[in-house]
Design a protein around this nucleic acid. Structure first.
Lengths: 329, 329
DNA sequence: ACGGGGTGCGCAAACGCTTGCGCAATGCTA
DNA sequence: TAGCATTGCGCAAGCGTTTGCGCACCCCGT
C-alpha cells in the first residue's frame, strides 16, 4: 500500500493541495511548511505516482524512441546520443524496437500515443512510413535517415556509397560488387543507387550478378561473399551495405583463403567503433552516429517547444583504413 | 484534444461505463452494443490513455530493465532476450541505463517505482546493490549476474575465467596476464578471483604486474596490452575480462607487431557474435546471453505471479577458437 | 400468475495528483 | 487608520478510466 499525498496531508494536518505544492517548492507555501512536509514525505517513503501526475498535469516528460534492432550497435549509438540530450532536458526515454513484424510495429506506435508521449524519434527507414505520419499526427516526431519526412536528420547515404565506390575506382578497381541489405528500405535503395551512380559517373558498367544480398549482419555478409567469389568472374572489390556486413565479408574471404586487401578490397558503411579495431581495420563511410542521435533529439525538443525546424542532411565522410588497397596484377 | 471515453459515450447515447465495458468485450454488454461502440471508437480515433487506465486499474503492464550501457552488445543481447518474453506475456519494457553516475542511477530506480512497475530486472553487477533491495522492496525484481540476491540468474563467472586460465596452462603457458574491468563490481572481482584460482590450483604464482586494468571496451584493452608488453618480463598469454577487451588487446598486439596466437595467446569472455568473426577468431568463455535474458524475464514473471523461485547458477563453457595456441620456444 | 434468475445497462465512487480560485491574515503605503 | 497588495493555505473540480452495485426488464419454471 503506497503512501499518497493525502496520507501525508492527514499526518501533517494540512490539505493535500498544500502537500502537492510544498513538494514542488511552490512560492506561495512558506519555507517552514515546505521543510516540514518534505521531511515527512521522505520519512514516510512517499513516491509520487507518475500516472496520476501525468493524468492531472497534462504534460508528459517522456519521449519515445523506435529502433529496428537492439543488437545493432549503430542504432545503439544513436540511442546513446538521444538519451544524452533527453537527460539534459530532464526527460525520460521509452524505447521500443520495431523489427520486421508489422503487427508489432503498430503496437509500438500505439503504445506511443497511449502514453501521450511528449514526442518521439524513429531511427531507421520505415517500411511503411505513411502510417507514421497518419497515426500520430498530433505528437511531434523526428525521423533519422528518412528523406520524405519534413522533420528529419539524415546523412546523404547515396553520396556516401558513391564516395566509397569512387575510392575503389581510384585504387584501380573495376570489378566492384555490392552487398545489399536485402530488405526493401529506403536506406537500402539509396545506398544501392549510390553504388550505381558511383560506377556510372566514372563510365563503368555494373554487372548485375555482382549485386548480392546480405542481411545487414555478420552472417549475411559471410554467406553473400561466398556466393560472390564463386562466380565465374569474381569482383576485386566489394562495397558493403554497412560495417557489420563488411566484417562478415572479410571473415568469409579469409575462410576461403582470399586476402584483404591484397586480393580483394572491402569498404563498409557506418564507421562503428569496431571498424578501427578489426584486422584489417575497415575502410568505411562515416556516419556521425552519436551526433545523429543528439541532433535528432535536439530537433525534437525544438519542435516540442513550437520552434520551426527543417530537415537536415549531413555529409558523409570517407575513412581510409587497411581493408582497401590498390588493384594488383 | 484527444477523444475520451466520455466523448464516445455522449455520441452513442450511453454511459461511459458501458463504453469502457464494450471496448473490452465485457459479457454483460450485448453484442450489438459492442459492435456499435467499437466501430464508433475506431471512427473517432479513440486511443485509451495509459495513465488513466493505470491509475484506475491498479495494475501495470510494463516491466523495467536496467542495463549499464546501451553500447555494450552483451547487454543488448540480454535485453533482446528479455524483450522476447515480455512480449510473449503482453508486457512492455521500460529500459534505462545506469552508468557510473550514482545520481542518475538513483533517478532510474526512482523512475521505476514512480511508474509503479509490475517488476524489473537489472543486468550487471550493481555498484551499490544495497539500495536496490531497500528502495524498491515492494516490487519484484530479478538480477542478472549478481550473487547475493535471492532472485537472480547468473553464470559462474569465477569458474569461467578459471576454465580459460586452465586452457592456457594446458597449452603450456605459464606467464599469464589478466586484463581486468577496472571498476569495482562483483563481476570484476569474481573474474579476477577465477584468474587467481586457475593459476594457484595448478601450483603457479601470479605476478602482480601482470594484472592490469582496461575499461571493458576496445580502447581499454588496447592501451592495457601495450602497458603489459612493455614490461621487462611480458606474458605469453592474456586472459581478458570480456570479449571487447580481448579484441582491443589483439588489435594492440597487432599494432606493436606481436602475432596472435603465435607469439601471445588471448582469451575473452562472453562469446559475442563478433568473437566468431574476428580475425583471429576468439577463444572465449561463453555466456548464454540471450538465454540469460530470457531466463531472467521468465523468473520475473513467475515472481510476479507469486511463485517461489530460487537463484540459478549457469555453467559457463569454453569455446576454443584461433586466438589461443601452444606456447612456442 | 408469481417468484427467481439471468441480461443489459447506468450511477457514482475511486485512483493520486494538479491547479484555479477563494478567503483569511499579515504587511505595506499614503 | 483606511485601503490595498501580498502571503499562506484550503476547497473542490477536474484528468480519463475502471468497477462494484443497483435497477429495470425479460424469460422460465411451477
Amino acid at each position: 500500500m503506497k503512501v499518497s499525498i493525502k496520507d501525508i496531508a492527514k499526518k501533517a494536518g494540512v490539505a493535500p493541495s498544500t502537500v502537492s505544492r510544498a513538494l514542488k517548492n511552490h512560492p506561495r507555501i512558506s519555507a517552514d511548511m515546505q521543510a516540514t512536509i518534505q521531511a515527512l514525505a521522505a520519512e514516510m517513503g512517499y513516491v509520487p505516482s507518475e500516472s496520476a501526475r501525468h493524468l492531472a498535469g497534462k504534460q508528459s516528460r517522456t519521449i519515445g524512441v523506435a529502433i529496428p534492432d537492439f543488437t545493432d550497435p549503430f542504432y545503439m549509438n544513436i540511442l546513446s546520443g538521444i538519451e544524452e540530450v533527453a537527460i539534459a532536458h530532464q526527460h525520460e526515454l521509452f524505447v521500443g524496437s520495431f523489427n520486421q513484424d508489422l503487427d508489432r510495429d503498430r503496437k509500438l506506435f500505439d503504445a506511443f500515443d497511449q502514453k501521450r508521449l511528449a514526442g518521439f524519434v524513429v531511427a531507421g527507414s520505415l517500411v511503411d512510413a505513411a502510417y507514421l505520419t497518419r497515426e500520430s499526427g498530433d505528437i511531434p516526431a523526428v525521423l533519422i535517415n528518412h528523406y520524405e519526412y519534413p522533420f528529419s536528420v539524415a546523412i546523404d547515404q547515396m553520396r556516401g556509397v558513391e564516395m566509397g565506390v569512387n575510392h575503389l575506382i581510384s585504387l584501380g578497381h573495376r570489378k566492384i560488387a555490392y552487398v545489399a541489405l536485402g530488405t526493401t528500405t529506403s536506406s537500402d535503395s539509396l545506398r544501392y543507387q549510390g553504388y550505381i551512380n558511383g560506377l556510372e559517373s566514372s563510365g563503368y558498367q555494373t554487372n548485375p550478378s555482382w549485386v548480392v544480398e546480405g542481411d545487414g549482419g555478420l552472417a549475411g555478409g559471410l554467406s553473400a561473399v561466398k556466393r560472390l567469389m564463386a562466380l565465374p568472374d569474381p569482383p576485386t572489390a566489394i562495397m558493403c551495405y554497412n560495417d557489420r556486413t563488411a566484417i562478415g565479408v572479410i571473415t568469409g574471404l579469409h575462410q576461403i583463403g582470399i586476402a584483404v586487401p591484397d586480393d580483394v578490397s572491402v569498404v563498409g558503411f557506418d564507421d562503428l567503433e569496431i571498424a578501427a579495431y578489426f584486422l584489417p581495420s575497415l575502410t568505411t563511410i562515416q556516419q556521425p552516429h552519436v551526433h545523429l542521435g543528439r541532433q535528432a533529439a535536439e530537433k525534437l525538443f525544438a519542435l516540442m517547444h513550437g520552434a520551426t525546424v527543417q530537415a537536415e542532411l549531413l555529409e558523409p565522410k570517407l575513412i581510409r583504413r587497411n581493408s582497401t588497397g590498390p588493384l594488383h596484377g
